[in-house]
Design a protein around this nucleic acid. Structure first.
Length: 542
RNA sequence: GCCCACGUAGCUCAGCAGGAUAGAGCAACAGUUUCCUAAACUGUAGGUCACAGGUUCGAAUCCUGUCGUGGGUACCA
């Protein structure tokens, strides 16, 4: 529809010169008595032409030449909108197209040949994934799928750090629990990880080594066993919600491969570093940041900024066209440093897109649950999945804008899981499947010969919603906003349920029934394709 | 103090690439099953789009300020 309008406006440019210089904006009016598409072009021209907008609108309409079998009506409304109404005959052609393309419908080749790296989760192996990581995981995975839907070849990447202070404390925590097994009361330090899983890991060490590590509190075994066990659990949890990574990137490799050292030298060569109080500072103030910051501590250890920058240089060296990072709002202040550092080294930071999502506030029994991995007062992602199911968890985390603070009432989620919107979507799909089973028994089949019979307001709304699918996928992908597609699918399901209530198939005249079957087949395909982007099941029965 | 995000119906949130009368779900109330799945549909009620200015033909949407909420502001990651 939109393409056709652009075409007829283009041909009219010869008649009206002012159409050549102005950009044509087409919008979908909220109220359908205002047509299928509206243009504000006459209003934007008022100033330039110093004429009444309605008058200009009339002049434009007179200059437009269009096919009467496609456009049924063009009218001027309100202050000077030009409203276009399409014929069912033209609009309904999409039904056949969708049925022809099946699961390819909605996919785009716009970014074919381009590669993207999406980094997400990236939790260090110090404990099980929590509900908080869940939002990160699902946003990252869904954005990756959306990018694939518009043509990108995507690598999902998990970045982790198995060195450093956090991990030392983890090792000590296990060692302390291990000593408890041996009956030795080593005081369990307050900074140790409190979770029960530490005891499980200590038990594994004990089973393997008995009491041989009794006097080796600092032995690497504790840390290594912990890392291995915890990572296994993390991968299991991820698999449980349908997420698999192409690669796990170990921060430690940046040290052993020399990336860190090379990076420091690069900064030095550019004259961007200086020493002060025994530490190495980077001149962030010359890179558009407020103050200079330490990149190597006086102890000789780099701060987190250095490996983060070095890590991103590897992404550039791996030649990705697009680099996406998914961070919680607690990292909001660190990524500008990374970008500034990369820019100083002449990397094209335009390729980097950072998605910052706001934290999920977990409510239980009317109270806010404060989460801390170390203190072990958290709800794990596994527990949540077991409680409400994978699909509800996934949908819950992408149905809202990443920028919005989200409240998650655990009690409500458990109690009302039946009323979750995800069931509404699935039910629409299952309902169609059910109709199709019945229709088959009645020996009725889909036909595209009389699609123009689908002309009631309800049917037209439903068909027009199908038209929007491709654009919604594209917009959700290029703006990294999965929730837009979720809103779209809910609207589609609502329109279908309304159609179901108003328009029967069995009992209708055969030609109409066949056209309606074609329509619901198309709706089913779009629902299924949309649900697939979210990695949700599209059930045939419920 | 400074930086980032948010503030829309009782609750959870869409709408924010400026457009016509601000939407959905839940909760409340009233209806709809001899008829393809009632996990559905229809209707009623519910709003100073935090507040105050500005930009313009037009602002929930863009800009400035104020208030409120969350996060950040380390030689922790």
């Amino acid at each position: 529809m939109k393409t056709y309008l652009r075409e007829i406006f283009k041909s009219a440019q010869n008649k009206l010169e002012y159409l050549q210089v102005i950009e044509l904006q087409l919008s979908k009016p909220q109220d359908d008595t205002h047509g299928d598409y509206a243009s504000n072009i006459a209003m934007t021209l008022t100033k330039k032409l110093k004429r009444n907008p309605r008058e200009i609108a009339q002049e434009i309409i007179d200059a437009l030449e269009f096919d009467k079998t496609k456009i049924s009506k063009v009218e001027i409304a309100g202050p000077g909108f030009i409203n276009f109404f399409f014929t069912p005959n033209f609009v309904n052609q999409i039904v056949e197209l969708i049925n022809k393309e099946q699961d390819k419908f909605g996919l785009s080749k716009k970014f074919e040949g381009k590669t993207a790296n999406v980094e997400f989760v990236s939790a260090n192996p110090t404990g099980p994934l929590t509900v908080g990581h869940g939002r990160n995981a699902v946003i990252g995975d869904t954005v990756a799928t959306l990018l694939e839907a518009v043509g990108y070849k995507v690598d999902r990447e998990y970045y982790f750090n198995n060195a450093g202070r956090q991990m030392r404390v983890l090792g000590h925590s296990v060692a302390a629990r291990y000593l408890e097994f041996l009956g030795e009361e080593k005081k369990f330090d307050e900074e140790f990880y409190q979770g029960e899983y530490i005891k499980d890991i200590a038990k594994i060490v004990y089973d393997k080594y008995d009491n041989k590590l009794k006097d080796k509190f600092d032995d690497e075994i504790f840390k290594l066993t912990a890392e291995e066990e915890i990572f296994n659990d993390i991968k299991k949890s991820l698999l449980k919600i349908g997420i698999e990574f192409e690669s796990f990137f170990n921060e430690n490799d940046l040290y052993t491969e020399g990336n860190i050292q090379n990076l420091i030298e690069s900064f030095e060569e550019k004259g961007l570093t200086y020493k002060k109080e025994g530490a190495v500072w980077l001149k962030f103030s010359e890179l558009g940041q407020e103050v200079d910051k330490v990149i190597v501590k006086s102890s000789g250890e780099p701060t987190y900024r250095l490996p983060d920058i070095a890590y991103h240089t590897t992404k550039f060296e791996r030649n990705y066209d697009l680099i996406v990072d998914v961070f919680g709002s607690d990292h909001g202040a660190t990524y500008p440093d990374v970008l500034a550092g990369l820019k100083a080294l002449d990397y094209d930071t335009e390729k980097i897109k950072v998605i910052i999502y706001q934290f999920v506030t977990i409510m239980s029994k009317g109270k806010v649950v404060k989460m801390s991995t170390r203190k072990a007062n958290y709800i794990t992602l596994d527990e949540l999945i077991d409680d409400v199911g994978k699909d509800v968890v996934r949908y819950f985390f992408i149905m809202r804008n990443s920028n919005s603070h989200m409240n998650f009432d655990l009690d409500v989620a458990k109690k009302q899981s039946d009323e979750n919107p995800v069931f509404y979507l699935k039910y629409a799909h299952a309902r169609i499947a059910s109709i199709l089973r019945t229709v088959e028994e009645e020996k009725l089949k889909a036909s595209y010969d009389n699609l123009d019979l689908l002309d009631t307001p309800t049917e037209q709304k439903l068909v027009k919603q199908l038209h929007k699918y491709e654009e919604e996928v594209m917009l959700s992908a290029i703006h990294y906003e999965p929730h837009k597609l979720a809103t779209y699918l809910e609207n589609l399901a609502a329109l279908f349920h309304k159609f179901y209530a108003e328009c029967r198939i069995l009992g209708s005249e055969t030609k109409l029934a066949e056209a309606r079957i074609a329509l619901i087949l198309a709706v089913k395909i779009v629902l299924k394709n949309g649900l697939k982007i979210f990695s949700l099941e599209a059930p045939e029965k419920m």
